[in-house]
């Protein structure tokens, strides 16, 4: 039973991985990665890592992949890149296929090397079935076990990981925010109570030179300055 489940999950994981690499549409690549992740969670369950399998499904296949789907939908899942269309297929053809062949050769060499390193070593235990395992509420791989380890032996790693997540969240917001031109934030109109009380045309110097209208909307910020070249 366990062997059948292993082969099903392994075939699913490898098929999903092949799909990610081969499929041309990025949207289908994301879907292939979701199926790959779920198959991988089954493999984790077979290895008695219940908590990691649950995290894999909920966080990875759930949240992270939704983020990917959003970005693919936003950017537009074009199968052909813009640059390829600009240059024309003929110019990119030969060098692209040569590079692809080289990549395939390097990938195959990497696979052989990894298999030799992992399976051809003197590690006798890799041919075994692992250490003993007794089911129980606090045994190997359960949430209680993982939480105990995380908050005692690996507390520094845990805190560092949370700090890393904070930095990444701030960095993501900074990277993806809508940028204007230089100095736009200083010149942005600030709506004060006086602007609302004051009638139109009784205005300030800025209104006199046309940089600011009475209703407080910034008109100096055009669409062009949002995309600096």
């Amino acid at each position: 039973m366990s062997a059948v489940l292993f082969f099903l999950a392994a075939i699913g994981a490898i098929t999903g991985a092949v799909g990610v690499v081969v499929v041309r549409n990025p949207f289908y690549s994301v879907l292939a990665l979701v199926s790959h992740l779920i198959s991988l969670a089954v493999l984790f369950l077979l290895l008695r890592a219940e908590f990691v399998a649950a995290v894999q499904v909920v966080v990875y296949a759930g949240a992270v992949m939704v983020l990917y789907v959003f970005v693919v939908a936003y950017v537009g899942g074009e199968s052909d890149s813009i640059g390829e269309r600009l240059r024309g297929a003929g110019a990119a053809g030969p060098s692209g296929s040569t590079l692809r062949l080289g990549g395939a050769i390097v990938g195959g060499a990497l696979l052989v090397e990894l298999l030799i390193a992992l399976l051809g070593t003197g590690l006798q235990a890799t041919s075994g079935y692992g250490a003993g395992y007794a089911p129980g509420p606090r045994t190997f791989g359960t949430p209680a076990y993982i939480g105990n380890l995380l908050l005692t032996r690996f507390l520094i790693a845990f805190e560092l990981a949370s700090f890393l997540l904070l930095i990444a969240a701030v960095g993501g917001v900074v990277l993806a925010r809508r940028r204007g031109g230089l100095g736009e934030e200083d010149e942005r109109d600030v709506l004060t109570p006086m602007d609302l009380l004051r009638p139109l045309g009784t205005g300030t110097t800025a209104e006199g030179v046309g940089a600011r209208t009475g209703n407080g909307n910034g008109v100096g910020v055009g669409a062009g300055s949002r995309y600096p070249s």
Binding site: F6, L40, L110, L119, A125
Partner: peptide, 15 residues
């Protein structure tokens, strides 16, 4: 055995 899982992980990494 553990070796099968390691082989699958090597294949996924190479892909």
């Amino acid at each position: 055995s553990i070796a099968w899982y390691l082989a699958v992980s090597a294949i996924i990494f190479s892909l």
